[in-house]
Computed example of a mutant assay.
Amino acid sequence: MTSDEQHVQAGEPDRPEGGETSRNGHRGRRPRVAIVFGGRSSEHAVSCATAAGVMRAIDRDKYDVVPIGVSRDGQWVLAADDPARFELTAGRTPEVLPDEAHVVLPLSTRQTALTVLEAGQPPTELGNVDVVLPLLHGPFGEDGTLQGFLELSDIRYVGSGVFASAAGMDKHYMKVVFAGHGLPIGPYAVITDRAWRADRAAALDACAGLGFPLFVKPARAGSSMGISKVEEPGDLEAAIEVAREHDPKVVVEAAITGREIECAVLEGHGLEAPRTSQVGEVAVHDNHAFYDYEAKYLAEADVDLTCPADVPAHVSDEVRRLAAAAFEALGCEGLARVDCFYTDDGRVLVNEINTMPGFTPHSMYPRMWAASGLTYTELIDELVSLALERRTGLR
């Protein structure tokens, strides 16, 4: 879609009394969805791949689409509406490149128009946006920062709000919230930047007390970036330094012996409880120590993603119960994927929640909903519809 076409299609969204946007009423036009992707985090390429899948699958007869890319240095640009340009493959890493012209969102509750600014040129309005589909992964996007920006602009968006996004991104506080709500979690330790710099030996001793093997993770990163499996005490310090390249705060978890079982969650309409999908299982082949970045995105043949997972009915029910409970504990909205462990001794533990999970057509979240009767295109439509129903501001 060209800038001129987008300008012609611009118009004020129908906002009934009380600030609500009618789910189907937009003064005779289709709702406009801004797909925002890329970003400043190390998951930039993953975000581009997610956007490629969504751009290809979203119902163009139902929605007008405005792709907005965020470059690695944080510049917002009007991106090409070309899914092939942003697909992630073993031989190609997609990227949003900076541009002389950049996109500006309003910082007013009185308008929802996007504007393109370019040095020496008059501002160009792209028109109003009814909902933003934020597909950024990791810090500076998935962690509540973008959500806060959209709240300031009074623009509806898909997914969780500021707090749930921030807590869901931070594996430390995520676990604090889960434990506070009585959800079962595994043993862990946290190494803050100050603790590591002040007394490295004490931090190492606290982690070693968990036993080996250990998983060392950046507290606020995703897509398995910076994660190491540590088998021996002598390798722990180096693994922490690797994690600190992504985040100065590190979470160290005791390894759990068992199977990784996942569940997709969708917000309910109105007063409905959260909806849960069939559960799925991730099984990584022996040439990977765990479900790392390469296994997730570049070597699909090395991973078996099974849905429904072959587990007893009571285990599936417990995973789904805990997934919904985790969703509500953080106050999530829209969507989330909850990862659990089914241990060898029969327990189910909550590992983590992802408030903006991988969302390519091959990712576990849409695959679990497909196995539950909701296609990829229908899932995107459901998420946009939920965002259009939700009021802005405190809720």
Rank of each mutant, 00 (worst) to 15 (best):
D4G: 03
G11V: 13
G19L: 12
E20H: 10
S22R: 12
G25W: 05
A45V: 00
G53A: 07
R56V: 03
V65Q: 06
I68F: 01
W76Q: 09
A79P: 08
P83D: 09
R85L: 11
L97G: 00
P98C: 04
A101M: 07
L117F: 02
G120Y: 06
D130I: 07
L135G: 13
L135N: 12
H137Q: 13
L150E: 07
L152V: 15
A164I: 10
S165E: 08
K171F: 03
Y173N: 12
V176Q: 13
A201S: 13
D205Q: 15
C207M: 09
A208C: 13
F212Q: 09
P218W: 02
P218E: 06
S224W: 06
V230S: 10
E232N: 10
P233R: 00
L236C: 11
V242T: 15
D247C: 10
D247G: 03
E253S: 05
G258T: 10
E260P: 09
G268P: 14
L271Y: 01
S277D: 10
E281R: 10
A299C: 10
D304W: 00
T306A: 07
D317Y: 01
F327K: 07
G331D: 03
A336Y: 07
C340N: 13
F341S: 00
Y342C: 08
G393I: 11
